[in-house]
């Protein structure tokens, strides 16, 4: 279908996509706290969810050979999640086994910016903004 669009339309579409990335800042610059060069994927069990502004946070108990480490992830504010199909206390619950993809914080070793959550049944939900706004 895209190939049937006129050239100007495709250019406008691509330009609009690029422009969109110029104003991705939600509440603070991504780069202020997180490092887009350090992606991280963590699997664990949800321990707690703070459904609050300006960001939600959720805590994940991650087990490995050394024991259990608790990770904390920041996500979109509640209103953005609701508009992307989330339901409070339904979409993500304590006890859920999930895999979180995101980026590491610069200061705290077990803090991250969540981008996407993969649930036990395999479905995925966006949880936070893309990386790389670079403080722009």
């Amino acid at each position: 279908m895209k190939t049937l669009l006129n050239g100007a339309g495709v250019i406008a579409f691509v330009a609009a996509l690029l422009l969109g990335t110029a104003s991705l800042v939600a509440h603070h610059s991504f780069a202020a706290e997180y490092d887009s060069a350090k992606p991280v994927t963590v699997s664990g069990v949800v321990a707690r969810i703070d459904w609050t502004n300006p960001h939600i946070h959720f805590y994940l108990d991650v087990k490995d050979d050394a024991g259990t480490t608790q990770w904390k992830f920041e996500g979109y504010p509640p209103n953005m999640l609701i508009r992307q199909g989330w339901k409070r206390d339904v979409t993500l619950k304590p006890g859920d086994s999930v895999t979180v993809f995101g980026w590491r914080a610069r200061a705290d070793p077990n803090l991250g910016a969540a981008r996407e959550i993969t649930f036990a049944d395999g479905h995925k939900m966006a949880a936070g903004p893309p990386a790389g706004t670079g403080g722009q």
């Binding site: 100007a8 339309g9 406008a12 579409f13 609009a16 422009l19």
Partner: peptide
């Protein structure tokens, strides 16, 4: 954005 492109709507000028 695809609907914009299909309708020939010009993208905003670069910032």
């Amino acid at each position: 954005l695809k609907a914009d492109a299909a309708a020939g709507r010009p993208a905003p000028p670069p910032r």
